[in-house]
């Protein structure tokens, strides 16, 4: 079942069309990476899903219920972590979580129980000081805690790691990993390594359109332009290989002084042909490596 489904969503700011007829589904239980460069429209999409911004056209369903601008009925299923979460700085974390729980209409005992669990999860159990004195990383972790207070089916995180140092990033990603399976997570980012670390599905928003969408495994498989890299001991070995390589290898060959990279659709056949050439001419490479496509290459290719 899809926990979120976006159909033909369009949104313009003035004359700039930020979202151009995007359609997207997020299956239940996934950690969904929503990728796009700065200003691609990720936050706009998320804010429309939360009813904070009004769409020009299109429909959005959360848990099968239609989202309406300004109406917050669907938000009872959703937890939201803004990119820079803002809190009442004069409050302490437990007081803030109590406020959030009361607004979400949770019973008092449950609020206390959830607050303890979430402060433990986010490593803030001992931080009984005012939020105003929190570091950015602590505020981000409190942001996760407040977003999870009502045990949402869907957690929407808007660039949760962008403004953090490596330690802060790891802490947030670890928290998101821990809630995998209990809550579906949509995680917008432009940091592709974070997507590879925790997401099982991803979509790329570019030019107002979804240009890639699927599981990471499928995306890698369908956009396979795998490569084979051979490193030679000497430049002479490399030249000998190039001169004697089969014609189908010659087409997609990139050379440096002692290294060549072969590109081919059928990388297994290319690898076999390369090994034959090496054996036939008695060339011993230093290294022969199959290069799997990284997500970074995949997305760079998609936006070019």
């Amino acid at each position: 079942m899809d926990i979120l489904s976006i159909k033909n969503l369009t949104k313009s700011f003035g004359k700039t069309r930020v979202l151009d007829d995007i359609t997207l589904c997020v299956p239940e239980g996934s950690i969904f990476g929503f990728i796009g460069e700065n200003g691609a429209g990720k936050t706009t999409t998320m804010k429309i899903v939360l009813g904070l911004l009004q769409a020009d056209s299109g429909e959005i369903y959360v848990c099968g219920e239609k989202v309406r601008f300004g109406m917050t009925a669907t938000n009872r299923h959703v937890g939201y972590l803004p990119d820079v979460p803002e809190f009442y700085r004069y409050m302490r974390p437990r007081e803030y979580l109590r406020l959030c729980g009361e607004i979400a209409n949770l019973p008092r005992e449950l609020i206390e129980k959830r607050s303890c669990e979430l402060l433990e999860l986010t490593g803030l159990s001992g931080a009984n000081k005012r939020i105003g004195s929190f570091s950015r990383g602590m505020r981000q972790r409190l942001g996760v805690a407040q977003a999870l207070i009502n045990e949402p089916k869907l957690l929407i995180c808007d660039e949760p790691t962008s403004a953090l140092d490596p330690v802060g990033r790891k802490e947030i990603l670890d928290i998101l990993k821990q809630i995998r399976g209990r809550t579906t997570v949509i995680f917008s980012t432009h940091i592709l390594s974070d997507v590879e670390r925790i997401c099982d599905r991803a979509a790329l928003l570019h030019g107002g359109k979804i240009v890639l969408n699927g599981t990471l495994t499928d995306l890698k498989a369908s956009h396979k332009t795998d490569a084979l890299r051979i490193e030679f001991a000497t430049a002479a070995d490399k030249t000998r290989f190039c001169e004697n390589a089969a014609p189908e290898l010659q087409n997609g060959m990139e050379c440096t002084e002692t290294e060549i990279t072969l590109h081919a659709r059928d990388i297994a056949a290319a690898e076999l042909a390369a090994l034959q050439t090496l054996t036939q001419h008695g060339i011993l490479p230093l290294r022969l490596e199959l290069l799997a496509p990284g997500i970074e290459n995949l997305f760079l290719e998609a936006v070019q």
Binding site: L50, T72, N75, G79, Y80, P85, F87, A104, A147
Partner: peptide, 15 residues
């Protein structure tokens, strides 16, 4: 201005 209402409104609080 500061965006402190965003967390509150997305919890289902009526405007």
């Amino acid at each position: 201005n500061r965006g402190t209402l965003i967390n509150i409104l997305t919890k289902g609080m009526k405007r």
